[in-house]
């Protein structure tokens, strides 16, 4: 079995997909870093000071002003209100939610990329993992060995889990190394608030507590990893079901993007909670960022993601071990 997993990992490494993904990260992270630095600078310039308290206060006031707009949908208002409450809490407790430094950038980056950017990177390697063997014809060599089909598929799945882990961790490491050039490399011990809870539109701070940023990062990347594994698993199923690389990739891109769109466009439509790709923002539970869709809770999110993964795996394994290889 180890040999089989090694086979799959070797192919993945030699196919250069992983390097392409690292390349994408190396190009995009500096752009995001620069954009973030610009935003901070502009905000500081607007107000005339870089004191985070002033900036934060101004942000709160700006959001209060948005609330007065009658055109804003109710669910957005609730979202903004919770956001204001949380920021006021940071202010009251004298904790800077955006203390500059590469670790803070890592935190912001994973919180922003967990629902779209990271899943897309995972889709790049996962969506043709099985279908590429079909399109290159090598599936015929793979399945005429004295190895059961489920073992072949399992080795592919394990190597996919490893690759997903590698991508998530590389994102963390590269965003640290690259953003540190501008923001500096310190800030692992900065306190971060966690444990915000929401009840009936009000923010509960009963369980809010401080954790060091390094621990927060470990947890945030761990959660984004769970989300990425679900995306990987569903892509894996698609790559078993669909023979062409292009359509597999297309299906997964459409699914991930529409999950994000649904979250923005119709947060009041309760049924979208059960679509796995609207549940990817697991890090929001950690940061206490208000969740737009009504009725979302951590057990529900984990449950939906888990259920999708299990069902996808069952479909993948049953199909793969039964299906005739016709072309």
């Amino acid at each position: 079995m180890i040999g089989l997993v090694y086979n799959e990992m070797l192919k993945m490494v030699r196919k250069k997909r992983l390097w392409v993904i690292l390349g994408i990260l190396v190009i995009l992270i500096p752009i995001f870093t620069y954009a973030q630095a610009q935003t901070l600078e502009r905000a500081a310039k607007q107000i005339g000071t870089s004191d985070w308290k002033v900036v934060l206060k101004q942000q709160i006031i700006d959001q209060q002003n948005r609330l007065t707009s009658s055109r804003l949908p109710e669910e957005w208002k609730a979202f903004i209100k919770l956001n204001i409450q949380q920021q006021e809490y940071y202010l009251k407790n004298d904790i800077n939610p955006t203390a500059p430094g590469a670790p803070t950038f890592m935190r912001k980056f994973v919180e922003e990329s967990v629902s779209l950017f990271l899943p897309l990177l995972v889709v790049i390697i996962a969506a043709d993992l099985v279908s590429s063997e079909h399109s290159s014809g090598t599936i015929k060599l793979l399945l005429t060995r004295p190895v059961r089909r489920w073992k072949v598929l399992l080795s592919k799945y394990i190597s996919l889990l490893f690759a997903t882990s590698f991508i998530v961790l590389s994102t963390a490491i590269l965003s640290y190394l690259l953003s540190g050039v501008i923001f500096g490399y310190g800030g692992w011990d900065l306190p971060v608030l966690s444990g915000f809870q929401e009840k009936n539109g009000a923010l509960l701070t009963e369980f809010v507590h401080l954790i060091p940023q390094w621990k927060y990062l470990l947890m945030a990347y761990g959660l984004s990893w769970l989300a990425c594994i679900t995306v990987a698993t569903v892509s894996f199923m698609v790559s078993v079901l669909v023979r062409s690389t292009a359509s597999g990739m297309g299906i997964m891109l459409a699914a991930v993007i529409s999950g994000n769109l649904l979250m923005q466009l119709s947060p009041t439509w309760g049924a979208i909670k059960y679509f796995a790709f609207t549940q990817l923002r697991l890090t929001d539970y950690l940061s206490g960022r208000p969740i737009l869709i009504e009725g979302m809770t951590l057990p529900l999110s984990i449950g939906v993601l888990g259920a999708w993964s299990v069902v996808a795996l069952i479909i993948a394994f049953v199909t793969f071990s039964r299906r005739d290889v016709l072309a």
């Binding site: 040999g3 089989l4 086979n7 070797l10 192919k11 250069k16 060995r145 004295p146 190895v147």
Partner: peptide, 17 residues
């Protein structure tokens, strides 16, 4: 066979199976 592997790597790949 896998075009992005060498001949030997291809054989080793199947040997591991």
């Amino acid at each position: 066979l896998y075009p992005y592997l060498t001949g030997r790597e291809n054989l080793e790949h199947f040997a591991r199976m």
